[in-house]
Design a protein around this nucleic acid. Sequence first.
RNA 1: GCGCGCAUAGCUCAGUUGGUUAGAGCGUCACAUUGACAUUGUGAAGGUCCGUGGUUCGAGUCCACGUGCGCGCACCA
Length: 883
Amino acid sequence: MANEMAKAYEAKLVEDGIYESWLSSGFFTPENLPNVTDSTEAFTIVMPPPNVTGVLHLGHALENSLMDAMVRYQRLLGKKALLVPGTDHAAIATQARVEKNLMAGGMKHPRQELGREALVEKIREFAEESKATILKQVKKLGTSADWSRLAYTFDAKRNTAVNELFARMYNDGLIYRGFRVVNWSVKGQSTCSDDEIETIERESVLYTFKYSKDFPIAISTTRPETKVGDTAVAVHPTDDRYKAFIGKTFDVDFAGAKLSIKVIASDAVDPSFGTGALGVTPAHSAIDFGMYEVQKAKQDPIAIKQVIGADGKMTADAGSVAGMSFEAARESIVAWLKEQGLLEKEDKVVQNVGTSDRYGDVIEAIPMTQWWLDVNREIPGRGKTLRDLMREAVTTGIGGDSSQKVSITPDRFTKLYLDRVENLRDWCLSRQLWWGHRIPAWYRGEELVVGVRPEGDGWVQDEDTLDTWFSSGSWTFSTLGWPEQTADLKTFHPTNWIQMGYEILYLWLMRMILMSSYALNQIPFTDTYIHGILRDKDGKKFSKSSGNGIDPIEVIEAYGCDALRISVLSGNTPGNDSRYYTEKVEAARNLVNKLWNISRFIIGNAGGARHVDAPSDSPINGGEASLTLADRWILARFSETAKKVGSLIDRYDFSLAIEVLRDFTWNDFADWYLEIAKIEGEKSDVLLYILERLLILWHPFAPFVTEEIYKSFDSGMIIVAKWPRDLDGKWKMENGKLFEELKETIIAIRNYLSEHKTLPKDVESITIVNTGALAGMESIIGGLTKVKSIRSSDERPESITPIVVGAAQIFVQLPAVDAASEKIRIESEIADATTFIAAQESKLANEDFVKRAPEKVIALERQKLADLQEKLAALQKEHAAFL
RNA sequence: GCGCGCAUAGCUCAGUUGGUUAGAGCGUCACAUUGACAUUGUGAAGGUCCGUGGUUCGAGUCCACGUGCGCGCACCA
């Protein structure tokens, strides 16, 4: 069997076959798992559906590694583990991508040239192709998702859920149509939500001027062209400069536009900014629109006048600049102001402007009638608002039920979430895009029906589509069959865990909580793991435009999937960004190969793998126990490791779990125990016992190589193996110090030889005097230091200076030794020990320390001191020999 | 302006509720090597844990202030 295992692990040759075998095993579907019954505890993760906008990137590799590690771990624990896969139609992102492609292909205005149906068809083709690619790639990443439950945010079932949810919210009065200032992307020809805006910094000019010579108040603006739409000037109510004008209206002729400006008072005005007076443009500023509404409520209304159209051009009401682009209009207005002598000053300022995260253009504020979701209105029969539900979900649990509480890792994001919840404004739901769920509203004359298309002729459906996050918000339950009361919903919802990047905390996490708590009165999941983004070696974001993109599939081809998974998970901690670079994946590949070679050696030596229940620990012939010191040590170390890895994954500390596993695998198991096993011989039982279980511990992180090696055991597939949980206490290290002394001795000898630039083969002999713990360890010491002749003796050899380890003295007979340098070595060791002893003594002489520190700590410090004193005594004896 | 995060070896990062002489991987240097593995082994060098002050018997860890970098939110008229 040994010759069946290749010299090096070739991931490329085995991964596809193993994935196929998982698929045909059916184990990705929880109902097919062995020993699963109705009462088996479920563990559910829904996959954040990747956008069908192209191909997967490295961030997806991280996400899949996280959730797949988690679901595989839960499966190994024996739970009914489900990972629901899916993809996202990503309304605006996909349409923007396809339009961009078409324009790159020479089309000027895809929407006009193709029309709705043809463009949607083009997008559908692109989306389907992209979806197929992406699903193939998700599989390449080893993701153990239940493909029988595959969902798509834009399929018929999800459409039913979306429409149902929309209708319920409408009937509850939460969704309404309203005329408000919206965020408008001229380039995208659509609204967007507050969360889809990316603010950028840019330089701009702040112009200070008066509307006309006889207007009493000067105002400042960076957008003079919008001033043709001004209907008021707002000042702070306590501002003495302007108090007298409040309530007065002035008619002015401003660049060919007849303006009627009312002076109003508003607390929102900062008297110290600019002139302390603000030109109010209700139609083109969310703040100003707010003032417009306040004035309306105060029964002291001001007018609203739209001067920028949806096409980004000045409207017919814009006076002399009507029909111009707003850039041209600005120049024209500024020129006019100068000509008229109205311009008082120009200041360069740096300002933040909102841009469309998908189309990139600067967002315009334009008043329109749109569909909105009200977050402040009481939900009929529930006595609370959507905002209340969103708050409760992360604090007390919905309705005070702590089992309905979402916990967020790391915790600091909870605060961020809550800040946002408190500042949330109504959510603009409708988009003037074509790719997406069409608003389920039908009009006929004055009639409006929401939900399903009514019977009869003449009904016209709303042209707009829904914000893409409306469908993703319902993802945890729409994938499980809602609005039908399915068995899946009952078994798997609320889901248990989800991972997502912090950049979609507002866009997605909030919406999922909102939707689920509204529709089901349940949280979407109990635990949220927030991860950072992967950056390149220099800390830059990966992006197509900077040309530093890495295709995860190419990495898999070159290094194997397991190596990729380990490399993105190790060093990645909750909420923090991490870096990805080749050296990291190479190191991970080496680790995978190490695991492979350990296995090859063990299985080869044992003449094949077999399951070992437990290595025999019974005394042979009534004499010594059959397990040696090294055996007990490695079994105890393994037992500790298994326990630790489990609790680390329970805490979502994947990085540390991998580190602990690596440390055990490479250092303890391979470099120490395996080397000792070669010397002591007859170790197959212990080796196989540990190996089989070690593979299981690795499986969540390195599913392919572990499954491949596990084939050699006749234990079935590792994907459904049992996590070794029952080791604790079984293998206790009764005297761990003994093995540590053995290690210390070996390291000291190696070190000594290295210092003396002597090869082990040139050492004549090593004599150990006062062996103590090292009794009987001669062959191990010899084997691991590669020195042939090791013996214990009561008599110390003449004229050699020993190495001192604990109470033992180790005399290494070298071909030639310089006595003077030996003296210096001993003296420097004495100096080190003396310093440290002094520190220990003063610590222990401190009454406060002895009085207040826990006994355990004091005992430890005392032991340290005693050990050192013992060593110092031995060193001093050696030093005396020089005198 | 309000809030958050980060600062530890040359590089990338760990460091559980405060408790050994602060760790890992990579890199560097020296050495080894035909028997599981060069995708290897052995040894070494390398740290004022950003600064200042405080709490404590004890601080990389907790608190305050400061410095630098990054991020979120608001304002941006």
